[in-house]
Amino acid sequence: MTTTEQDIDKKLIPILEGVSDPEIPVLSIMDMGVVRSAVIKDNTVKVQITPTYSGCPAMDVIGDDIKAALKEAEYNSEIELILHPAWTTDWITPRGRKALEEYGIAAPLDAEADKDVLLNGKRIVKCTNCGSQNTRLVSQFGSTACKAQFQCEDCQEPFDYFKCLK
């Protein structure tokens, strides 16, 4: 599924792009693929968002931030949390992936490569600092549920890898 299937009112896009993920501030919720629909009805915006991970504590904050941003643009809003279809890392936009890398988080590989990296210790995740692929998995779970911890064996930089969810 691609992001083009989202039903989002064009007028709302700049507003929603101004809302960022509270745990990864360089990433807008639009680039994260968390907003599934946003439509205006009688000056009330109905927004559907989907969690990245079930226990993601950022979801409540994201909901509040969307409300605040829309309020500033003089819209009332209702936020609905939907679980289906389940979020996948494929919904992160190319711009989002770039922002992640620049922030020091390696963007998710495809599902097969992800398995090789996390299970079989294959060294293909690129260091966000020097670009070397000589990197080692430190832990399958990182600072948040969506990330794993890595370390570069060349420049020694420790960094997060955004795990593939598919």
Binding site: Y53, S54, G55, C56, S139, F141, G142, S143, A145
Partner: peptide, 14 residues
């Protein structure tokens, strides 16, 4: 430690 609490968080989310 972080892994175990992340698993816990996933389970609580579910």
């Amino acid at each position: 430690d972080i892994a175990c609490t992340n698993i816990s968080l996933d389970l609580f989310g579910q």
